[in-house]
Design a protein around this nucleic acid. Sequence first.
RNA 1: CGGGGUGUAGCGCAGUUGGCUAGCGCGCCACGUUCGGGACGUGGAGGCCGAAGGUUCGAGUCCUUUCACCCCGACCA
Length: 490
Amino acid sequence: MAKEVVNREENYSQWYNNLVTKADLAENSAVRGCMVIKPYGYAIWEKMQAALDKMFKDTGHVNAYFPLFIPKSFFSKEASHVDGFAKECAVVTHYRLKNDPNGKGIIVDPEARLEEELIVRPTSETIIWSTYKNWIQSYRDLPILCNQWANVVRWEMRTRLFLRTAEFLWQEGHTAHATKEEAVEETEKMIQVYANFAQNWMGVPVIVGKKTESERFAGAVDTYCIEALMQDGKALQAGTSHFLGQNFAKAFDVQFANKEGKLDYVWATSWGVSTRLMGALIMAHSDNNGLVLPPMLAPIHVVIVPIYKGEEELEMICNRAKELKKELEAKGIVVKIDNRDNVRSGFKFAEHELKGVPVRLAMGPRDYQNGTVEIARRDTLEKQTISQEGLADYVARLLDEMQKNIFDKALKFREEHTYKVDTYEEFKQKIEDGGFILAHWDGTAETEAKIKEETKATIRCIPLNAELEDGVCMVTGKPSKQRVVFARAY
RNA sequence: CGGGGUGUAGCGCAGUUGGCUAGCGCGCCACGUUCGGGACGUGGAGGCCGAAGGUUCGAGUCCUUUCACCCCGACCA
């Protein structure tokens, strides 16, 4: 498949460019792989944030904010957690600069060394749990359902725009519960929130499942995830929700008095999605003309391009366009009139397609005369001329249809690139083509590691809603009760 | 940290055996003609050829050192 897909990873850079650039940091800077999110890209992120934030609030969560800096000692408390992050942490060691006494600019003041180094948060479990300790005495203090919108830093060996930047924006939910059942329920609820967002807002179909032990979050008892398939056949983990058990409560000594008056450790969850979602959005829907944005996340729904000769005609058409804009806006549709005089209309068409604006209306003197407008939809690139009468209703319906169509198209793609495989030989062949492979696995980390080693494919997840089916592991022949999802992943 | 590759204008590149004032495309600026799918013409601005050292009458080009970036692996959302 990979060969036929035109918009492979290397081709995305063209349409990334409207959204982000790689940060232009000073030469010799040790920081690599940071990105500048441009206004248009940030507008998409804001739409995502707003939708997610509302979903969090609707499920009973509140926002809070915790420090960027975490004392080093906090990390030593949960052993597997620190194992997971130790290798990719930025560390603050000093708090002051001074003029170089040798006149060579600015140096770090060696006198200003911190007694305890501070870690720039790679994730906030440790600082949040050391805070929660002070918030929790009784079962009456529970549950705590906090979310934080923040940036985090992970010093990755290798970065990739959107998918793995050294600094990224995300949200992280951290909850504390009195019972295991409640915490598990929360974990599952939030992965469903993410699945709902991915599918209904982003138009990206996802498989909801659990990670295997070796793919699990550092410090978690269970990691739930949503996995999406990109158009180049690679899988992308788009969101995770972790059941942390009592690991962090024990590490940070967070106990509460239950109804019986006995002390118990609280049960925890954490869950997050990041700007990586924008990468998913791009790679799931883009075509050779650029981005394709689902209307629900498009910063601009409709662009009106006036076609004219001379200022008189421009004014005449723009006035009509403004009236149409008002009608559309009354339906909650975001409209931009592109009346730039310094570029031609063909250029504007191409540019708005590149940026993924869902609907384009072009109006020239002919349309003005006839009371019509040319309407073009971004997802199918179809154009037709329709009446200006009832335009707002037409566009509103079209946007709904496009939202659905974009999802359906992605779903169809995924279904066409999901294969059931029963032998390891076939697996090795099939994995070269990309896509999801459903196969039996004996449940051991050894087999999983062997497969990864030999094929670069990982178990993306053990799907939650999959039908049980007796089978044998394609590698070892040991019994298996259900198929798991394999893929090569970002 | 291993294996490959690249540094020349804002971006993308050519310049391969050393030679005069370093070139092309895009973009940018000015004027004009255009304007229903990325316009065209004319003129113009913009470069210590990644850095340092060396060879030479002469270095973008050869040698040495060094720095940076990109790709592929290991790590990861």
